[in-house]
Structures are given as C-alpha cells and as structure tokens.
Computed example of a mutant assay.
Amino acid sequence: MWAQTDTIKPSAIWPDTHGGHIQAHGGGVIKVKDTYLWYGEQRTRDLDTAYRYVSCYASKNLVNWTFKGNALILTRPDQNLRNWVLERPKVFYNKKNKQYVMYMHIDGQMVDANGQVNTASGYSYARVGVAVSNRAEGPFKFIRTFRPLGYQSRDIGQFIDDDGSAYLIFEDRPNGFHIARLSDDYLDVEKDVCLIPEHMEGGAIVHYKGLYYCIGSLLTGWTPNPNKYATAISLAGPWSDFKDIAPPEQRTYGSQSTMLLKVEGAKQTTIIYMGDIWKPSAQWDSRYLWMPLHIGDGQLALPQPRPWTINVKTGQTNTSQPAGNTIQH
C-alpha cells in the first residue's frame, strides 16, 4: 500500500503512487501549468527486448508521482542497427503549437557493407531521435534519427532559458559537448551556440541570477566520477574552468548528472541537482539522487545527500540533519 509522503529520500527506493519503484532513469522534468512531468528510461524487469520504452510520471509537488504510462514504445529505428539503446529521453513542450517534442539518444552497432555487425564500435550510430505527441503522456510518434548539425551525438541534456528558447546539449566524442538551439517548432537543431571543448557527458545547464551554470560528468561509463561545473554570463561563453561540485573522493555521492531543475517559488528559487545512481547489473533497481544545490555568485556545490522537503509554491526547502552516511551504492 502506497502512503503519501512529503520527503525526498536520495538513493532510496522512490515509490510512485501505486507503490512501484519509479522507472524514469536518465530523464528530465518539465512543468506544464501546475503539473510537473518526469520522463525517463523505463527499465522494469522482463521488458520485451525488441522494444525500448520511455515512461511518463506526473506530480504537483515533485515528491508524489503518478505513473501515466509508457509515453513511447519504440522498435528498432534503423534496420542496420544492432544491440541498440535508447537513452536519456528529454521532452520539451512547445507552447506555440501545443506539441510535446521528445529527444533521445539512439545508439548501437551498425551492420557493415558485408552484412557483418561491427562489434569493434559499440556506440557507432551516435544519433538523436525525435518523437512528437499532442498529449503529455503520449503516445509519442517517432519521426526520425539524425546527427545534429552533422556531429556525433551521445548523451543529451535539455535546457529552456528564461526567454523560453529551447536548447539541446549533446556530447560529441571527437570534439566536446555542444549547446545548440532548437528550431521554432523544436523538431530540428538550428544553431550551434557553443562547443565546450571538455570531454564530458550528462550535460545540464541552469540560468540563475545572471549566470549560466553548466555541469557534466567525466567519461567513465557506469562508474561514478567527480562531476564538475563551469559558469558563463552567456551560453556562447567564454566558460570558466571546470571545478568539482562535491568533494572528488565522494564521486558525486555515487551519482551522475542528468538535469538541473529550477523551481521558482513565491519566496525563493531553488535549483535541484537531478542525478542517477546506476546499477548496471540490476538496472531496474537504479536509484535517484535529487538534492537542492548550494548555488550563487559563481559557486555551485552539491551537499551531502539526506532526506529533504520542498514547497513548490514558495520554492523553500528543508533538509534534515545528517545522521551518518545514508547513501547506498
């Protein structure tokens, strides 16, 4: 039996309103009117391996989430693609045409000209996929895959600026990671605003009190590492040097960044670090690390995770006193 709660507990099982562990890994959150929508990788056990799934959850308070169903169920998008993955889905809501647009990382091994699978390059496809829906919970209709502006694209992130303009963050292994503006209908990548020449993934951006803060994770696969941040007065840069967001020996408390969520309340604005605690051998049991950041004047720090509450109307948070190491790896 599910019991409503007002507390977010980093690294613990996070049940939805039906009592099931939330399956929205590598995801992102948007707010439409008074409802928050959380989309992510559906990794429940025993899924049909012929498909990949993106889940949708809804909440009014960022704590209690209702499963709205699998917004996207996708079969292999390219017949030459093998051992394929769908990762880090991010959804934008286009207010002009009232359409939801989903971006995702599509990757895998390609069949060569001789019909053989190129096993030497596991992530050789390196594209984004795009799908659309008129309803938040879907079903989303898959449109196409492509390489944004002709570049390789692996991990992706999303950013919506204060003026409503939408950006895709994508990791381009040869060059770094890009901040690119979407077209007016959000269906294409229109302009490369900045290439940050750091080899990082899990990119996320927030605009807070006149500064842009960008965070990212080093390229260590499933293994956690010290995530880092930089700042700039413009998305186009120049960006500062990257610094650790937490003590490096903590390896971001076992998590990897996926998004920076801005909650603008009547009394204060809170920036939430959204991270994934991956469990590669039991992916359905992967956890979440959400914590309000210490941020301002060019500084950003992820505090030691512990249970906390948030009032989304006021923007105020309350964090419990530490009681030893509560983080489970």
Rank of each mutant, 00 (worst) to 15 (best):
A3D: 06
Q4M: 05
I8W: 03
S11Q: 01
A12H: 04
I13C: 02
P15Y: 01
D16M: 12
D16E: 08
D16R: 07
G27P: 09
V29C: 05
K31F: 02
V32N: 03
Y36D: 00
L37E: 00
W38K: 03
G40V: 01
R43Q: 08
R43I: 00
T44G: 11
D46M: 09
L47Q: 06
A50K: 15
Y51L: 13
R52C: 07
Y57A: 00
N61A: 10
N64K: 10
K68W: 00
N70W: 00
L72K: 00
I73T: 15
T75R: 07
T75K: 09
N80I: 15
V85A: 13
Y100D: 04
M102E: 03
M104H: 02
I106S: 13
I106L: 04
I106C: 06
D107S: 14
G108P: 07
G108M: 13
Q109I: 12
Q109S: 11
A113T: 03
N114H: 12
T119H: 13
S121Y: 13
Y123W: 11
V128A: 02
G129F: 03
A131K: 03
N134L: 06
A136D: 02
A136S: 07
A136G: 02
K141F: 07
K141E: 11
I143N: 02
F146R: 04
R147I: 08
P148H: 10
Y151R: 04
S153N: 07
S153W: 09
D155H: 07
I160R: 10
D161S: 15
D163H: 12
S165N: 08
A166S: 13
A166M: 11
A166Y: 02
Y167M: 07
P174N: 08
H178N: 10
R181G: 06
S183I: 14
S183P: 08
D185E: 06
D185S: 14
D185I: 05
Y186I: 14
Y186F: 15
Y186P: 08
D192G: 03
V193K: 01
C194F: 01
I196M: 04
H199I: 08
H199M: 07
M200F: 12
E201T: 11
G203Q: 12
H207N: 13
L211M: 15
Y212D: 08
Y212W: 08
Y212Q: 07
S217N: 13
A232C: 10
L235A: 07
S240R: 03
I245C: 04
P247T: 10
E249Y: 04
T252I: 14
S255H: 04
M259G: 03
L260V: 05
L261F: 15
K262T: 14
G265C: 14
K267N: 10
K267L: 15
T270Q: 07
I271T: 03
I272W: 01
Y273S: 01
W278Q: 01
P280G: 05
Y288C: 09
L289V: 13
W290Q: 13
L293I: 08
H294W: 04
H294T: 11
D297R: 09
D297G: 09
P303R: 04
P303V: 12
Q304H: 10
Q304T: 14
T309Y: 03
N311Y: 04
K313R: 03
G315I: 08
T317M: 08
S320E: 12
P322E: 11
A323G: 14
G324L: 14
I327G: 01
